[in-house]
Design a protein around this nucleic acid. Structure first.
Length: 293
DNA sequence: CGCATCCCCTGCCTGC
DNA sequence: TGCAGGCAGGGGATGC
């Protein structure tokens, strides 16, 4: 589920199916997700063309012909499933599992070429909003987001500046979307292991002088990039097959080094430690006490 | 302001 | 087999 790499994988799949196509019908099955859906949502989407699928942090952004952007957040359990009416890879599965029997399908997009895209979200922490072009940057969802972790704005000097003097933990920093946007619980754990830094380490101790970049800040930036890019690559490799598989986007097999591996050996060469699970601000944190300092 | 805690919702797994 | 409790990848609201 969806952190930045999963959302990016979903974006690529949705782009293939949606970009350049007109939404002929939008079937809305409930008035709200986490928040109320837009007023007259189907009427404002039907008959309009989707120009481009973009992403900002964990948000999907569909540019609609005429100037609006459909902003979509998957929350914890949001999921898109694509069925192509012309050549379904597994006839029947879509209708059996999603359309007919899944009571958590909240929205179904019908495209001009017969493609059907269902959005389901059992926990309903996800949401959608329709935002005018001029307000997109300043809307309450995107305003205040930190830099993209894979972009130029996330770098050692900037991170060092952000961390200087902070007493909170490194893990809390990685999860703070105002400092860097798109990392969730899994990749925060993975990046800190990759960087050999303790999740509980006070953020301020990563820099020796306020605002001054050093090797540790640089190591953390590199680690974040490494784990996110590897996960996107894994999703992308699955994506090539999705049209021939089940059409579910963003759920791919990806092996983690520490996440959900309590009690297993630390995979770092020569470490010999054991991965542990320990709550951190109410959420599970997985780490190796031996090599993460 | 920074930081931690609680909470929204449903499903699944575990242990009794 | 039933049931209670814990846990789940997000993030907004609240209170210290």
């Amino acid at each position: 589920m969806p952190e930045l790499p999963e959302v990016e994988t979903v974006r690529r799949g949705l782009a293939l199916a949606m970009e350049g196509r007109v939404v002929t019908r939008l079937d809305q099955r409930r008035p709200d997700l986490r928040f109320a859906l837009p007023e007259n949502f189907p009427a404002r989407i039907e008959g309009r063309r989707i120009l481009r699928l973009g992403r900002r942090a964990k948000y999907l952004l569909a540019d609609i012909e005429g100037g609006d952007t459909l902003l979509m957040h998957l929350g914890m359990s949001g999921r898109f499933t694509i069925a192509n009416g012309a050549a379904p890879a597994r006839p029947g599965r879509f209708h059996h599992d999603i359309a007919a029997h899944d009571r958590h399908v909240h929205l179904v997009f019908h495209l001009e070429d017969g493609t059907i895209i269902a959005y389901d979200d059992p926990r309903r922490f996800g949401y959608m909003a329709l935002i005018g072009e001029a307000e997109l940057e300043t809307c309450r969802f995107l305003a205040g987001l930190g830099p993209e972790p894979l972009g130029n704005g996330f770098n050692a000097p900037a991170l060092a500046t952000a961390l200087g003097g902070r007493t909170t933990s490194l893990k809390a920093v990685l999860l703070n979307q105002r400092l860097v946007a798109g990392i969730g619980n899994i990749y925060a754990c993975e990046a800190l292991h990759e960087a050999a830094l303790s999740p509980w380490r006070a953020a301020g101790t990563l820099v020796t002088r306020r605002g001054l970049a050093n090797a540790r800040a640089s190591r953390l930036v590199d680690a974040v990039r490494t784990v996110l890019m590897a996960a996107i690559a894994a999703g992308g490799s699955t994506l090539r097959d999705f049209a021939h598989a089940d059409g579910e986007l963003g759920y791919f097999q990806h092996s983690f080094k520490v996440y959900d591996r309590d009690g297993q050996p630390c995979p770092r060469a020569g470490c010999g430690g054991t991965v542990r699970r320990k709550p951190h601000n109410g959420r599970s944190t997985f780490y190796c006490p031996r090599c993460q300092k």
